[in-house]
Design a protein around this nucleic acid. Structure first.
Length: 271
DNA sequence: AGTGCGGCCTGTCCGC
DNA sequence: TGCGGACAGGCCGCAC
């Protein structure tokens, strides 16, 4: 499912139910995610208060006074908040019960997601320590992109989708941002001029902000923590539109693959 | 060191 | 209706 706008939508949805709440119990139904859910998580968390719900890239961080739960939704993960008496569904692998009576449930059919536990600063965890800048932060600029990409021969789309260069951009938003920046996805990133790097950063930020404002993109199965879909899919300019006319010039949108991922391009607008 | 690809999983959809 | 294969929003880890 989830790229930055979807994860941020989930974070905002669960925050009011979690912040300041005491954890009364924790249940692991199936620990076999990308990495095993730590077996001692229930005893680590029970009785403690959730102090904050943060996001770093596509990772969610549930902070408590004892330590932090790092959550990644992978491709098909969902988080939802339900009341005590609601029954569990298939693929509900993990849940946290709160004193308020609400429960936070992690559901993930494909099990590419992760639930991890760290006692010290989660940002120092090996998975998070090497992440690139947040795309909506001041440190992600055209100059940064220009500097990082010099001499690199990989394509601009693959560069954007690597979270060591910049976090939160997956296949949908990489396709969309490159269209809005009028840059062809298969261009070697090292060939981008400084000015085009600036345009690309602006396009990324605009695309992500708009998607967050619309609650994310729901193509197959994304729903927010309340079970509602996002609406950004109505704004997709190229993603999933192969064979249809470009919204700018009418040229038929072309579908290819880069690094095994579907890549959409208007061959007229994106050079 | 930088780059490309296989693999992890289940569910869904499409063509035969 | 059933079955095989391709594909799906991520990303680590390992080859070259």
């Amino acid at each position: 499912m989830p790229e930055l706008p979807e994860v941020e939508t989930v974070r905002r949805g669960i925050l009011p139910y979690l912040e300041g709440e005491r954890i009364t119990s924790v249940q692991i139904r199936n620990p076999n995610l990308r990495w095993p859910i730590p077996a001692d998580l229930p005893e680590q968390l029970t009785g403690y208060f959730i102090t904050a719900v943060d996001r770093r890239g596509k990772y969610l961080l549930l902070r408590s006074s004892k330590g932090s739960v790092i959550i990644h939704l992978g491709m098909s993960g969902h988080l939802r908040v339900i009341s005590t008496n609601m029954q569990s569904n298939k693929h509900d692998h993990f849940e946290i019960m709160l004193e308020s009576g609400y429960r936070l449930v992690f559901n993930d059919p494909r099990r590419f997601g992760a639930i991890l536990w760290v006692v010290d600063d989660p940002l120092l965890h090996p998975l998070l320590a090497e992440l690139g800048p947040e795309p909506l932060s001041r440190s992600f600029t055209g100059d940064y992109l220009f500097k990082q990409s010099r001499e690199k021969r990989l394509t601009v789309k693959q560069f954007l989708m690597n979270n060591h260069h910049v976090v939160g951009i997956g296949n949908i938003y990489a396709n969309e941002a490159l269209f809005h920046a009028a840059i062809r996805p298969d261009l070697p990133v090292g060939k981008l001029s400084r000015n085009r790097c600036r345009l690309l950063v602006k396009a990324i930020q605009k695309t992500l902000k708009e998607a967050i404002a619309m609650g994310g993109t729901s193509l197959h199965d994304f729903i927010d923590s309340a079970g509602k879909p996002g609406y950004f899919q109505t704004r997709l300019a190229v993603y999933g539109r192969s064979g249809k006319p470009c919204l700018h010039c009418g040229t038929i949108i072309n579908l290819t693959r880069l690094g095994g991922r579907s890549t959409y391009r208007c061959r007229n607008c994106q050079q």
